[in-house]
């Protein structure tokens, strides 16, 4: 049985029919075709599917879709300005060499954004804490930390 769901997605109100069994990730990727959010494992262990719900970084692959009712959801597609200019974190990831295969990148950026939204100048430990749930096999994380520091420093 499908049910109606209303929430704020990337700053705009969205009303859509969903199967209550779906995860938020399924709605985003398969129905709304926002494929910037990735599925790396499907059980909350890799962070590739991270989105921000009401300020919190969340694994959308585990998040029951009905629970976003009335909430604000931000995906990687939602942090680029309408004029196409990128979020400072996106720019920093690009300029600091924090992107290799890129599959973890959207989730990594969303985890970092939730951190920077809550805290202007995080310590290195706080950065590590924030992205501990985001796995990356390519970069060794060094330049990802550099990028987050650089984005935080540039604000």
């Amino acid at each position: 049985m499908k049910r109606e769901l209303t929430f704020i997605l990337n700053g705009e109100a969205v009303t859509t029919e969903v199967d209550p069994q779906w995860t938020l990730l399924y709605l985003l990727r398969e129905v709304l075709e926002l494929t910037g959010t990735k599925e790396g494992c499907g059980y909350g262990e890799c962070g590739a599917c991270t989105v921000i719900i009401d300020g919190q970084a969340v694994n959308s692959c585990l998040f029951p879709v009905m629970e976003v009712e009335g909430k604000r959801v931000t995906t990687i597609e939602g942090i680029t300005s309408k004029d196409g200019s990128m979020h400072p974190l996106q720019t920093a990831f690009i300029n600091e060499g924090a992107v290799q295969c890129g599959f973890c990148t959207p989730g990594m950026i969303m985890s970092a954004k939730a951190l920077l939204d809550a805290k202007d100048k995080p310590t290195e430990d706080e950065i590590k804490e924030a992205i501990e749930g985001n796995l990356c096999r390519c970069t060794g994380y060094v330049k990802i930390i550099d990028a987050i520091k650089s984005a935080a420093g540039g604000r």
Binding site: L34, T35, G36, T75, E77, M86, I94, V99, Q100
Partner: peptide
């Protein structure tokens, strides 16, 4: 020189199309 990766903007904005997409 330290030139940013050419495909990084696609990847950092979620526009890169992987086989999953």
């Amino acid at each position: 020189k330290k030139i940013p990766k050419r495909d990084a903007p696609l990847k950092a904005t979620g526009s890169a199309v992987y086989i999953q997409d």
